[in-house]
Simulated scan of single mutants.
Amino acid sequence: MEPSIENYIKNLVRDAILNLQFQNDRQTYVIANWKMNKTIAEASEFFQNLNGRQDVNIVVCPPAPLLYPIQLIIEQFKKPIGLGGQNVHWEEKGAYTGEISTEMLKDVGCEYAIIGHSERRQYFLEDDAAINGKVKKALKAGLIPILCVGETLEEKNLLQTEQVLSRQLFGALKDIETSQLIIAYEPVWAIGSGQSATADLAEQTHAYIRSVLERVLGKRAESISILYGGSVNGENAADYSRMPNIDGVLVGGASLNAASFDEIIDVFAKGEPNK
């Protein structure tokens, strides 16, 4: 065999092994975004009724006033659940009424922070530069960013999905070199609409997102978990779980009910469902 051909084949095999290794190392997540819902009493009832699992990463992101009470509830009921904020600011402290800092999130037990959710982009006019600042601040503080990206219905109809995702990812990850983050693909047209991207469409989009991440972070991109979010429920979760580039889900409305959230968790877990 010619040396050049032999080296080419060896490189292909090496890359395939590396890609498989990174894929096997990727963590599976089922993350709840409660948005502006629940009281302390309702949250307590939720966790009493939630089975939870040890074989999948479960994260709950409640409204800010519930963060510390829920941390105490999680400890009380000994649930294997991580805690995350729904937002974070890029400054440590200061005159930013209504905002929350990384130090505050860490102080109440948070390990994660949702950044760049479409509702924040739309209603609070967060741009890519602001989101980039938040990602950097979260990483510096030791929080794992859950970076949300996704296109609107108009952008989808104009066939601009890839263009939008590229802009959002390059903007949010500017001057960032670590892979210690989670990406959540949330097509804006699917959030809260009852419409969801098909598993095949989501897989295709996730593969594109990973290709963009490779341009930004190189091989480290293979270790980043990419989640799907957008009207996820117990009926469609299994379809997403079968896709190689879908590493879990970010769940909105279906995460407000313990039984429906448990159903989704069981789909993405590795073992038999809890009884």
Rank of each mutant, 00 (worst) to 15 (best):
I226K: 01
T178W: 07
Y228R: 04
L217Y: 04
R220W: 00
K134R: 15
N233S: 14
N233P: 11
L256R: 14
S193P: 13
Q160R: 13
L165T: 06
P244N: 02
P244E: 05
S179L: 03
S193M: 14
P145Y: 09
T198S: 15
A199Y: 06
R167S: 14
R242N: 09
Q168L: 10
E263P: 01
G253M: 03
Y228P: 08
Q180L: 05
T205L: 02
A184K: 10
L147M: 12
W189S: 02
L250K: 06
V135F: 05
D127E: 12
L165C: 06
Q204D: 13
Q163L: 10
A141Y: 03
D200Q: 13
S166Y: 12
E162I: 00
E222G: 13
A259G: 00
S225I: 01
C148S: 12
P187Q: 12
L256Q: 14
D200Y: 03
T205G: 00
E203D: 11
I226H: 02
K136D: 05
I176S: 07
R215D: 15
D175P: 09
S231G: 11
H206D: 05
R215M: 10
A172M: 04
I264K: 03
L139N: 01
E222W: 11
D262L: 02
S193F: 11
E263R: 12
Y185N: 07
G142I: 01
I182E: 08
L217E: 07
I265M: 07
R220H: 10
L169F: 02
A207Y: 08
E155G: 15
L173Q: 09
Y208M: 10
T205W: 03
L159K: 14
I209V: 14
V135P: 07
E151S: 08
I209R: 03
S166M: 02
L153H: 05
A238C: 00
S241E: 11
E154P: 01
E263V: 00
L201Y: 15
Y208F: 15
E235C: 00
A259R: 14
N245T: 02
I182P: 06
L169D: 06
A258G: 10
A258C: 11
N245W: 03
N257R: 14
Q180R: 14
L201F: 12
E186A: 06
I183Q: 08
A197V: 08
E151I: 03
G248H: 06
N236Y: 12
I144Y: 02
G253V: 10
G171W: 13
G194M: 08
D175V: 08
T198E: 09
E177G: 09
I246T: 04
N245F: 09
K136C: 01
